[in-house]
């Protein structure tokens, strides 16, 4: 059963500190585990309901950006670094080579014009807490040569194939502020086929 508003936990930052409010855990009694063949006690269940509080730190602009329809990446602009000009997506706060802070760049248009499938996999399996519809079509997206990495995402409209062109879509209505706000569809997909809440 989904939690009611009264059963949820929320967190704000006030004066530089986390301020939780609401309910963060609902206590559930443990249950004994018996061996049905011998009738003897073997153990107990330990049910637990927890919420982690997590900082995005310097990656926060990326996760805020996708909820607004923007694909932000970072670029090393250090003239003394061999990797100058390299664009990183996944977004890296610092260049992995010179460890200088990288520049945030908007690659939304680059993604629309150059993204294609590098690899993919279709699976009917998932773990607990999955919210993606199954089968899940994982794709790895390569961009033009400036982008030196290959982004993992999911294809939500169309069938994946290595080399096929794809375009990003963004959950701009009620964003989750997670990577789930960024997905891909095959190039040419009409807006009417996008999942609820997503736009190009």
């Amino acid at each position: 059963m989904p939690k009611t508003e009264e059963e949820k936990g929320f967190v704000d930052i006030i004066d530089g500190r986390y301020k939780p409010r609401g309910k963060f855990h609902i206590i559930e009694k443990n249950q004994p585990i018996f061996n049905k063949d011998t009738g003897k006690l073997a153990g107990v269940t330990n049910p637990r309901d927890m919420t982690y509080i997590h900082s995005y730190g310097g990656e926060a602009p990326f996760f805020e950006g996708i909820g607004k329809g923007k694909l932000l990446a970072t670029r090393c602009d250090n003239p003394k670094c061999d990797s100058i000009g390299s664009i990183f997506e996944p977004f890296r706060i610092y260049c992995p080579d010179c460890l200088r802070k990288a520049t945030i760049v908007d690659i939304t248009e680059k993604a629309r014009n150059t993204a294609k499938i590098h690899s993919f996999i279709i699976t009917h399996r998932s773990g607990a807490f999955n919210t993606l519809p199954k089968p899940i079509k994982f794709i790895n997206v390569e961009f033009d040569e400036e982008v030196v990495t290959i982004l993992m995402s999911v294809l939500v409209v169309g069938e994946p194939e290595i080399g096929k062109r794809v375009v990003p879509i963004f959950r701009t209505k009620d964003p989750t502020y997670t990577i789930m706000d960024l997905m891909f569809v095959l190039e040419g997909t009409p807006e009417s086929e996008l999942p609820e809440g997503f736009t190009f």
Partner: peptide, 21 residues
């Protein structure tokens, strides 16, 4: 945890793209 885990919560999926390639 930010870039992969929310996508299906299934490690096989993150590995199997390598197998596919």
């Amino acid at each position: 945890k930010d870039w992969e885990t929310p996508l299906g919560h299934i490690y096989t999926g993150y590995y199997a793209v390598m197998a596919q390639r």
